[in-house]
Amino acid sequence: MSFFSNLLGGKSNSSAKVAKDRLTLVISHDRTDISPQLLENLRKEMIAVLTKYMEIDESNIDIGLDSNDRETSLVANIPVVRIKRGQPNR
């Protein structure tokens, strides 16, 4: 939000802007209808699979659903510390 539009219209905290922000947030939840529990289970299982192949930084994993343009994607950012060599240990 530029200085001028703030000066002229106060758009940054206008009621229309507040409505848009609230709607954007709630609709992204509506569209993905996935429970935090389900996301947590997914996270645990993904970690279990991934650690067979690589050492990952579990404390900095970021997994979530992202909605735009009527499509939802699973976005995961998983820092890799080291790739394991050879066969995964079962």
């Binding site: 106060g10 206008s14 229309a16 848009k20 609709i27 735009n68 343009d69």
Partner: peptide, 15 residues
């Protein structure tokens, strides 16, 4: 007066 969602706002949200 920025008191109602504009046409572009609604289209951004609903795509």
């Amino acid at each position: 007066n920025n008191d109602m969602l504009s046409q572009d706002d609604v289209l951004d949200i609903l795509s």
